[in-house]
Computed example of a mutant assay.
Amino acid sequence: MTCFKPLPLSLLQSALLFIAACAFSTTATAGNLVVQVLDKEGKPAPDAVVVVVPASKTAAPKNPLPSQVTIHQEKMRFVPAVSLVAVGAKAQFINNDPWEHHVRASAAGAAQFNATAGEGFELRLDGKPEGKPAKTADATFSKPGAVLLGCHIHGSMRGHVYVSDSPWAALTGADGVAQLEQVPEGAAQIKVWHADQLIDIAAQAYTVTASPGKLTLQLSVVPRRRRL
């Protein structure tokens, strides 16, 4: 009869910790993804929001979405024209123009037809006095989705804030490319949103792997040229 001598407790604990670490490293793998967004004519679409919703949440994004953002009103524009933030993010609006502006925030696109009464917010900002600090106002974006920014006085002013409930989200640059890092491996849904795309494009199924991935998505519109 063969007898086995039990392992010392400290050695047994170390072995269990090693096994657990190996298991975690196996499941908590992530990959990088490059998404190219094109307009209806096949040209790069800047300021598109790409959101990846992985089935597994075993990894954390390399660059978390901002929890605070500053949006300027200047030369009759919202700057930046599109901001991407996390749910619960706080925004500070700054009026750099010498005349009064408002900030009217409401659901954007098709979502506006499902918005409840009183949803959104309205702010008023006096014009910036010469030689004095600009006027500011604060707001919080507590609900996921696209938000349209406008001004009661100047109807041509338009901006957007996209509030993402997935931390794996990015804005496309001038080349129409969004880069997302450390996306959990496995099944995922990829959504693309653009301010001029009134009807949301259906989410696309995608499998994230450890190898760098690349995907091209196309809008059904040609975005209007932004005023400089």
Results as ranks from 00 to 15, higher is better:
111 A>P: 08
68 Q>I: 00
93 F>D: 10
97 D>N: 12
80 P>D: 10
179 Q>D: 13
92 Q>S: 13
178 A>E: 09
142 S>Q: 13
168 W>M: 02
129 P>A: 11
157 M>A: 10
116 T>P: 01
174 A>R: 12
159 G>P: 05
105 A>N: 06
52 V>Q: 06
172 T>H: 00
109 G>E: 07
167 P>A: 01
97 D>W: 05
151 C>M: 01
37 V>P: 03
99 W>R: 11
166 S>I: 00
68 Q>G: 02
116 T>N: 14
144 P>I: 00
119 E>I: 05
90 K>T: 15
84 L>F: 12
36 Q>H: 15
174 A>F: 03
171 L>M: 06
147 V>S: 00
174 A>Y: 08
55 A>T: 07
167 P>Y: 01
86 A>L: 04
177 V>M: 08
152 H>G: 08
109 G>N: 05
143 K>F: 06
176 G>K: 00
159 G>W: 01
63 N>M: 09
66 P>K: 01
135 K>I: 15
172 T>L: 04
116 T>Y: 11
179 Q>W: 00
42 G>M: 00
85 V>S: 08
107 A>P: 11
161 V>R: 02
147 V>L: 00
122 E>A: 14
107 A>W: 05
116 T>H: 14
157 M>H: 06
170 A>W: 01
38 L>W: 05
130 E>W: 03
105 A>H: 04
158 R>D: 07
146 A>N: 04
150 G>N: 07
143 K>N: 05
133 P>Q: 10
83 S>Y: 06
52 V>Y: 05
39 D>E: 15
58 T>G: 10
90 K>S: 14
112 Q>N: 11
154 H>M: 14
38 L>T: 07
161 V>D: 01
92 Q>H: 11
146 A>K: 02
108 A>R: 01
41 E>G: 06
93 F>H: 06
90 K>D: 12
101 H>C: 13
73 Q>L: 15
125 L>E: 11
156 S>P: 06
83 S>H: 11
96 N>Y: 04
160 H>E: 13
48 A>F: 03
52 V>L: 01
89 A>M: 05
90 K>R: 13
63 N>F: 01
57 K>P: 03
120 G>M: 12
48 A>I: 00
153 I>L: 12
163 V>I: 02
98 P>F: 14
85 V>F: 09
74 E>Q: 15
137 A>V: 07
70 T>N: 02
163 V>T: 02
167 P>N: 06
114 N>C: 09
78 F>C: 10
136 T>A: 11
104 R>L: 13
146 A>D: 07
84 L>T: 04
126 D>G: 13
39 D>L: 04
88 G>R: 06
80 P>V: 11
137 A>M: 09
120 G>L: 15
136 T>M: 14
180 L>A: 02
169 A>N: 04
43 K>A: 09
63 N>D: 15
125 L>W: 07
77 R>V: 11
106 S>M: 14
179 Q>L: 09
118 G>H: 08
145 G>C: 15
146 A>Y: 02
139 A>C: 15
70 T>R: 02
159 G>Y: 01
117 A>V: 15
132 K>A: 15
154 H>L: 11
66 P>E: 09
140 T>V: 15
47 D>E: 08
133 P>L: 07
169 A>P: 10
114 N>T: 12
113 F>D: 08
81 A>F: 15
89 A>H: 07
112 Q>M: 12
39 D>M: 07
90 K>G: 10
121 F>E: 11
